[in-house]
Each structure stands twice: as C-alpha cells, then as structure tokens.
C-alpha cells in the first residue's frame, strides 16, 4: 500500500507539474516521470507486460518524438498572450473558474472513494497478466475490437500522409 501511494503521488505530482511548466522541454521530461510512476502502478497490479509496454512505447518512443518536435519548433517559452480572438472562457479569469471546477471534482472523487464500499462485481483476477494470456484474450474475446483498431490506425495513417504531403496544385502554400 505504501508503494502504491509512493508511485501514485509521483504520478499525480509530475502530471501537475507538466501543466504548470512554462518551458515545454521540462513538461516533456516531467511527463516521462509520470509515465514511469504509472508503469510502477501497473507492476503493482500484476500486469508486468503493460508496465514494460508503457516504458518502451510511451516513455521511450513517443516521448522522444515529443522532444524532437519541441526542439524543431524551437519554442523555449509557452506563448501565454491572450488576444481578442481568445474565447472569453479561455482568458485568465475564467481559467481560475476551471481550476475551481477541477478542485470541486477532486473533492467529489475523494468523497466518493471514501464512501463507496468497493466494487459490486467480480474480476477475473490476475489471470491475464502473462503475454501469452493477453495475446490469447486479444485474439479471441476481443478479436472484433482488435480488428477495428487496425482500421482506426489505417485511418490515422491516411490522415497523417494527407495532412503532411506537399500539395502539387499551382499557387499552393503547402
């Protein structure tokens, strides 16, 4: 339980710092810390495969890409100017209102967690922790969702190619 609270507080603290930082590079590095703590939580939940994937895919591959993009964009400071086109709700005053809502929600969550007497259903338990079991369930019980995910990724690929490719029409800026 102590280990849980350790990892959980690192994850929450790092996530809070991610949005509090003005320097995007710091934000990215803190996000890696948050992901690391999350993978610790997955190990506690008896899901070592997910924990490793979390490190390899998210903390490794994706965050390196993030860092590349941040460096390519060369944006050392976040742009915090609010011009007339900013929606009224996104200007500094209403942002405090948003923070208030978030605080209220956190309060509700704590209240609900302390009041609720645990789950009402049963879990399959740690039966799906191994890679083999995970693969088996992915290709049998959740085969349909797995197949649809491949379409989803194809859509994202087509979209990425479409938005990134050079337009060969004359007079186009892209």
């Amino acid at each position: 339980m102590t280990v849980f609270y350790l990892f959980a507080s690192i994850a929450v603290g790092a996530s809070l710092l991610v949005i509090a930082q003005r320097n995007p590079v710091y934000s990215v590095l803190l996000l890696i810390a948050s992901f690391g703590a999350l993978s610790g939580l997955y190990i506690l939940l008896d899901a070592p495969f997910v924990a490793v994937i979390q490190i390899v895919v998210y903390a490794g591959a994706i965050m390196v890409l993030f860092l590349f993009v941040v460096m390519l964009l060369n944006a050392p400071q976040e742009d915090t100017e609010f011009d007339a086109r900013t929606h009224p709700l996104l200007r500094p005053g209403p942002m405090k209102f948003g923070a208030l809502l978030a605080a209220a929600f956190t309060g509700e969550l704590i209240w609900a967690l302390t009041r609720a007497g645990g789950g009402s259903g049963g879990f399959a338990g740690g039966a799906v922790s191994s890679v083999e079991a995970l693969g088996r369930i992915l290709f049998t019980d959740y085969a349909f969702a797995f197949e649809v995910t491949s379409v989803l990724i194809l859509v994202a690929m087509v979209g990425a190619v479409l938005l990134a490719r050079r337009d060969d029409r004359p007079g186009s800026r892209f």
Binding site: F144, V148, T149, L152, V155, G159, L162, L163
Partner: peptide
Amino acid sequence: ISAFVGLETMAVSFYI
C-alpha cells in the same frame, strides 16, 4: 470496448 473503438474510428476520420 467496442463502443469506444467505434467512436474513435469515427472521430479520427472526422478530425481529418
């Protein structure tokens, strides 16, 4: 799970 995957497929298409 399937509802969410369907929702994502629709939403990502519309974003593009």
